[in-house]
Simulated scan of single mutants.
Amino acid sequence: MKSLEKYAKKMASDWDRVLVRRVMWIDMEERIRRIFRDVEGSPYANEFGALFILNGIHEDAKEFYITQRLNQIQIGCGTRFLGLNAIDIEDEKPKKKVRFEKGAALWFSQSPTGGVTVFMSPYSSDVVTMTEDNIIIGMYKEPSRLTEREIYKIFSKFFKYLSITSALHPHTSLDYVWRLWLIYFDARSKRFGTLFNSLDRVIIFGGAFVTVCAFIIQALKS
């Protein structure tokens, strides 16, 4: 049977290709860690909270060889205090609570095929929370596509995202449009959105764009 041989060879080829891509993770992770060391050493790094980097896999999973696990690496932000206090009621008693934001992260996750998906999540706090839990900002066929230049671009996008999702940011219309743009091009939105949802996103984006234009025109007149 010709189809049996044809697709058996294709599956064998896929297997070989996947193994190569999974091994590529080693060099990609080293590039990410090297760039993070530069970031961590900057005097501006503390503005984002206590930045840290870690493997997003269980300690026991590290015993597996690199090709036998789904790898992940994450850059996270620690607690960032907002300089605000509040009174919360717990067990019918008032209790002082310090306001802070946390939860922002950038992570690189490997798929079974060896490809890499890049996510980022915003700051969240009791004061301000974004509508999105996370956004996919890149999907790469193999780790080698994540060159140093590409990783720098991803970090730059992440730091901008951190700055505009902080509770202390003025949250302008332009910031909102930029976030909406990222959400619109999230791979999950494009791949699984129905025609109605696609039109809905276009309308929302168009409305936001018109709002920004009106804001700029009004600012120029004043």
Rank of each mutant, 00 (worst) to 15 (best):
K2D: 14
K6E: 12
Y7V: 07
K9M: 12
D14E: 14
W15S: 14
D16L: 15
R17V: 02
L19V: 11
R21V: 04
M24L: 06
D27H: 06
E29K: 15
E30F: 03
R33T: 09
I35M: 11
F36N: 05
S42D: 08
Y44K: 14
A50R: 14
A50W: 04
L54G: 11
N55F: 04
I57P: 00
I57N: 00
H58Q: 13
E59W: 09
D60T: 13
D60M: 05
A61Y: 07
A61W: 09
K62A: 13
K62C: 13
Y65I: 08
Y65D: 15
I66F: 08
I66R: 02
T67I: 15
L70W: 04
N71K: 10
I73N: 08
I75D: 05
G76A: 11
G78Y: 06
T79K: 15
T79H: 04
R80S: 11
F81W: 15
L84C: 00
L84H: 07
A86M: 05
I87H: 02
E92R: 10
E92W: 08
K93F: 02
K97E: 00
R99D: 01
E101Y: 03
A104W: 03
A105F: 11
A105T: 04
A105C: 12
S109T: 09
S111H: 12
T113H: 12
T113Y: 07
V118Q: 07
V118W: 12
F119S: 01
F119L: 00
S121K: 08
S121I: 04
P122I: 03
S125V: 07
D126R: 13
D126A: 10
M130V: 02
E132R: 13
E132S: 11
D133S: 08
D133W: 00
I137L: 01
E142P: 01
E142H: 10
E142S: 13
R145Y: 09
L146G: 03
T147F: 11
T147Y: 02
E148W: 01
R149H: 13
E150R: 14
K153T: 11
I154A: 00
F155R: 05
K157D: 09
F158G: 09
K160F: 10
Y161L: 06
L162E: 07
S163G: 00
S163D: 12
I164A: 01
S166G: 13
L168R: 06
H169L: 00
H169T: 10
P170S: 09
H171L: 05
T172V: 02
T172S: 11
T172F: 03
S173G: 12
S173T: 13
L174V: 11
D175G: 01
Y176F: 02
W178H: 05
W181P: 00
W181Y: 15
F185C: 11
F185V: 09
D186E: 06
A187T: 12
A187K: 12
S189Y: 08
R191A: 07
F192M: 10
F192V: 09
T194P: 05
T194I: 06
L195K: 13
L199Q: 04
L199N: 09
L199S: 02
R201A: 10
I203E: 07
I204Y: 09
F205M: 15
G207T: 01
A208M: 07
A208T: 04
F209H: 02
F209D: 00
V210L: 15
V210Q: 00
T211G: 06
V212W: 07
V212F: 12
F215A: 10
F215M: 06
I217S: 04
I217D: 01
I217K: 08
Q218F: 03
Q218Y: 00
Q218T: 10
A219E: 02
K221M: 12
K221Q: 11
